[in-house]
Measured scan of single mutants.
Amino acid sequence: MSIQHFRVALIPFFAAFCLPVFAHPETLVKVKDAEDQLGARVGYIELDLNSGKILESFRPEERFPMMSTFKVLLCGAVLSRVDAGQEQLGRRIHYSQNDLVEYSPVTEKHLTDGMTVRELCSAAITMSDNTAANLLLTTIGGPKELTAFLHNMGDHVTRLDRWEPELNEAIPNDERDTTMPAAMATTLRKLLTGELLTLASRQQLIDWMEADKVAGPLLRSALPAGWFIADKSGAGERGSRGIIAALGPDGKPSRIVVIYTTGSQATMDERNRQIAEIGASLIKHW
């Protein structure tokens, strides 16, 4: 067993022997301040990774656009098919120029040779490549099948209805392509620590998230040296922004954090800054 596999296998073990965790309302004060600064709703939840206990939450059962955070769930569904012998990570998928959609920095470079399922998941999570996500959605049967996968996990809230990039439209009061912070946090925890996926697939999923290259201005910008984070960000229309993450000190994750916002007129930089400040408060009061 590799060191990384050992780390993920012992996530519940280490967490069980940690000192009790206590909620700190100071972080919620910052979440509410972010709402004021952005002029928009902000949803927040913080779960203990081992027990699933909610440590703090704000608007945990209000719907927010998922945006690209759905790509972690998508690759979880792909990995479940791999575990069941219905898919192979090494299978190569070929596609054409007509398949390319807006923001496809990886797939646009491989029109000639195609990409493997493993490479597509890596591109979808680490670079948020939209064509990679659409190609992977095709392998599982489309958005409705991802929703069905989530329902089978016990998540009857999260739903995907459309493809990239239309799913980022974020129309107010439109339930399409949305989740709730509580539902997303619980589902992410199941994917990373539950028995739904094999140990190898859980490790692969967290490795992809740990290698995320496009979430630097968010929670990662607030992390002290030595902290662990595996995350996936999302951005959408109407001032929408979000991030889902597993993080913790001492090089291992111990909490799940989900943050979503929508309806702001603020710039992307300002949305990023507010999420980073929430992260800084979380870490300060850990």
Results as ranks from 00 to 15, higher is better:
residue 209 M to D: 00
residue 187 T to L: 07
residue 25 P to H: 15
residue 282 L to I: 07
residue 138 T to C: 15
residue 267 T to G: 11
residue 209 M to W: 03
residue 261 T to D: 05
residue 65 P to K: 04
residue 50 N to H: 13
residue 214 V to C: 11
residue 261 T to M: 14
residue 283 I to V: 14
residue 121 C to K: 00
residue 221 S to C: 12
residue 83 D to A: 08
residue 117 V to W: 02
residue 219 L to E: 02
residue 156 H to R: 07
residue 279 G to W: 04
residue 46 E to L: 14
residue 251 G to V: 13
residue 255 R to M: 09
residue 224 P to L: 05
residue 282 L to Y: 03
residue 222 A to M: 06
residue 226 G to E: 10
residue 149 F to E: 10
residue 215 A to V: 04
residue 81 R to H: 09
residue 235 A to Q: 05
residue 60 P to F: 15
residue 75 C to K: 03
residue 56 E to K: 07
residue 99 D to K: 09
residue 210 E to I: 15
residue 135 L to E: 14
residue 286 W to G: 02
residue 164 E to L: 01
residue 281 S to V: 09
residue 102 E to G: 08
residue 28 L to N: 14
residue 251 G to M: 12
residue 29 V to W: 07
residue 82 V to E: 08
residue 171 I to P: 15
residue 29 V to D: 06
residue 106 V to I: 15
residue 151 H to Q: 10
residue 137 L to T: 10
residue 211 A to V: 15
residue 268 M to L: 11
residue 149 F to P: 01
residue 219 L to C: 03
residue 224 P to K: 05
residue 193 T to S: 13
residue 90 G to A: 14
residue 178 T to S: 11
residue 264 S to I: 05
residue 220 R to Q: 05
residue 100 L to N: 04
residue 253 P to M: 12
residue 196 L to G: 10
residue 251 G to Q: 07
residue 53 K to V: 14
residue 60 P to R: 14
residue 250 D to V: 10
residue 184 M to G: 00
residue 108 E to G: 15
residue 195 E to W: 05
residue 55 L to A: 09
residue 80 S to M: 09
residue 214 V to H: 15
residue 182 A to I: 07
residue 124 A to V: 15
residue 34 A to V: 10
residue 274 Q to F: 06
residue 136 L to K: 01
residue 251 G to I: 08
residue 130 N to G: 05
residue 273 R to E: 15
residue 196 L to V: 11
residue 172 P to W: 10
residue 90 G to R: 12
residue 188 L to S: 05
residue 140 I to E: 04
residue 122 S to I: 07
residue 268 M to P: 10
residue 167 L to M: 12
residue 242 G to P: 00
residue 36 D to Q: 14
residue 203 Q to R: 06
residue 129 D to H: 01
residue 25 P to T: 12
residue 44 Y to D: 00
residue 172 P to R: 08
residue 234 G to S: 13
residue 102 E to F: 08
residue 186 T to H: 12
residue 91 R to G: 05
residue 56 E to T: 10
residue 281 S to W: 07
residue 86 Q to S: 12
residue 174 D to I: 03
residue 138 T to A: 12
residue 166 E to A: 12
residue 57 S to Q: 07
residue 206 I to G: 10
residue 146 L to C: 06
residue 80 S to V: 10
residue 84 A to K: 14
residue 218 L to C: 05
residue 95 Y to S: 03
residue 107 T to N: 04
residue 131 T to K: 02
residue 90 G to K: 13
residue 113 D to I: 13
residue 111 L to S: 09
residue 215 A to Q: 05
residue 73 L to N: 05
residue 155 D to M: 02
residue 281 S to R: 09
residue 42 V to A: 10
residue 88 Q to S: 14
residue 253 P to F: 06
residue 136 L to Y: 01
residue 33 D to T: 08
residue 191 L to V: 15
residue 36 D to T: 14
residue 70 F to K: 02
residue 38 L to E: 13
residue 235 A to F: 03
residue 143 P to I: 06
residue 42 V to N: 04
residue 101 V to C: 10
residue 61 E to M: 11
residue 52 G to F: 05
residue 218 L to H: 03
residue 263 G to C: 13
residue 185 A to H: 00
residue 125 I to L: 10
residue 120 L to P: 01
residue 50 N to S: 12
residue 80 S to I: 10
residue 149 F to I: 15
residue 229 I to P: 02
residue 178 T to G: 03
residue 239 G to V: 01
residue 91 R to M: 14
residue 282 L to W: 02
residue 286 W to T: 02
residue 260 Y to C: 05
residue 72 V to A: 08
residue 144 K to L: 11
residue 229 I to R: 00
residue 255 R to T: 05
residue 220 R to V: 03
residue 115 M to P: 02
residue 177 D to V: 01
residue 236 G to M: 02
residue 195 E to H: 15
residue 161 D to L: 03
residue 114 G to L: 04
residue 91 R to I: 04
residue 227 W to E: 00
residue 214 V to I: 06
residue 245 A to K: 01
residue 50 N to Q: 07
residue 253 P to W: 09
residue 277 E to A: 06
residue 62 E to L: 08
residue 76 G to D: 02
residue 275 I to N: 03
residue 186 T to Y: 13
residue 130 N to E: 01
residue 97 Q to P: 08
residue 70 F to G: 15
residue 222 A to K: 11
residue 211 A to G: 14
residue 67 M to T: 11
residue 94 H to A: 08
residue 33 D to Q: 12
residue 109 K to F: 08
residue 148 A to I: 12
residue 79 L to M: 13
residue 52 G to N: 08
residue 78 V to C: 06
residue 145 E to V: 07
residue 72 V to S: 11
residue 181 P to T: 05
residue 271 R to H: 13
residue 118 R to L: 10
residue 255 R to W: 02
residue 51 S to G: 07
residue 206 I to M: 15
residue 272 N to S: 14
residue 215 A to Y: 04
residue 105 P to G: 05
residue 216 G to T: 13
residue 102 E to W: 06
residue 259 I to P: 00
residue 87 E to K: 03
residue 279 G to R: 02
residue 194 G to R: 11
residue 76 G to C: 11
residue 188 L to E: 00
residue 208 W to S: 03
residue 164 E to H: 00
residue 47 L to I: 14
residue 67 M to S: 10
residue 144 K to E: 10
residue 146 L to M: 06
residue 110 H to L: 09
residue 281 S to F: 06
residue 255 R to D: 00
residue 239 G to W: 00
residue 73 L to I: 06
residue 237 E to G: 12
residue 56 E to A: 06
residue 78 V to R: 01
residue 42 V to D: 02
residue 187 T to N: 06
residue 112 T to F: 13
residue 163 W to Y: 13
residue 26 E to M: 15
residue 171 I to H: 15
residue 125 I to T: 09
residue 56 E to D: 09
residue 261 T to L: 12
residue 56 E to Y: 05
residue 135 L to T: 11
residue 234 G to Q: 00
residue 128 S to A: 01
residue 277 E to F: 06
residue 39 G to M: 14
residue 46 E to Q: 13
residue 212 D to W: 03
residue 247 L to I: 12
residue 212 D to C: 05
residue 37 Q to P: 04
residue 198 T to R: 10
residue 226 G to F: 14
residue 191 L to Q: 04
residue 183 A to W: 13
residue 51 S to Q: 09
residue 166 E to G: 14
residue 115 M to T: 04
residue 158 T to G: 05
residue 233 S to K: 02
residue 160 L to C: 06
residue 253 P to I: 06
residue 75 C to Y: 03
residue 139 T to H: 11
residue 255 R to V: 10
residue 155 D to L: 01
residue 137 L to R: 00
residue 282 L to R: 01
residue 222 A to I: 05
residue 109 K to G: 08
residue 254 S to D: 13
residue 264 S to D: 04
residue 51 S to C: 05
residue 112 T to S: 11
residue 267 T to A: 08
residue 90 G to Q: 12
residue 33 D to F: 08
residue 216 G to V: 14
residue 122 S to H: 10
residue 32 K to W: 15
residue 212 D to V: 05
residue 253 P to Y: 09
residue 80 S to N: 15
residue 77 A to Y: 12
residue 230 A to L: 05
residue 43 G to M: 00
residue 75 C to R: 02
residue 135 L to Q: 14
residue 231 D to Y: 04
residue 51 S to R: 07
residue 62 E to I: 07
residue 144 K to Y: 06
residue 131 T to G: 12
residue 186 T to L: 14
residue 80 S to L: 13
residue 119 E to Y: 04
residue 258 V to F: 02
residue 260 Y to A: 03
residue 96 S to W: 09
residue 110 H to N: 06
residue 50 N to M: 15
residue 115 M to F: 04
residue 188 L to H: 03
residue 208 W to D: 06
residue 67 M to D: 11
residue 213 K to Y: 05
residue 256 I to E: 00
residue 156 H to I: 07
residue 165 P to C: 07
residue 76 G to I: 06
residue 275 I to R: 01
residue 228 F to P: 00
residue 33 D to R: 08
residue 200 A to N: 15
residue 165 P to H: 13
residue 152 N to S: 12
residue 88 Q to R: 14
residue 199 L to I: 12
residue 251 G to C: 10
residue 229 I to A: 05
residue 175 E to L: 11
residue 208 W to Q: 03
residue 257 V to H: 01
residue 42 V to Y: 15
residue 28 L to W: 06
residue 256 I to D: 01
residue 218 L to S: 03
residue 259 I to M: 11
residue 145 E to Y: 08
residue 284 K to Q: 07
residue 40 A to L: 05
residue 209 M to K: 02
residue 241 R to F: 03
residue 271 R to W: 04
residue 221 S to I: 14
residue 278 I to F: 05
residue 75 C to S: 13
residue 239 G to F: 02
residue 167 L to K: 00
residue 94 H to R: 09
residue 119 E to F: 03
residue 220 R to C: 04
residue 171 I to S: 14
residue 61 E to C: 08
residue 224 P to A: 08
residue 195 E to N: 08
residue 185 A to C: 10
residue 67 M to Y: 01
residue 100 L to K: 05
residue 211 A to W: 12
residue 252 K to S: 11
residue 192 L to H: 04
residue 77 A to G: 07
residue 241 R to L: 04
residue 167 L to H: 01
residue 97 Q to A: 11
residue 39 G to V: 12
residue 99 D to H: 13
residue 266 A to I: 06
residue 127 M to T: 13
residue 114 G to D: 04
residue 186 T to A: 12
residue 184 M to K: 00
residue 76 G to L: 05
residue 209 M to Q: 01
residue 183 A to D: 06
residue 101 V to F: 08
residue 157 V to G: 14
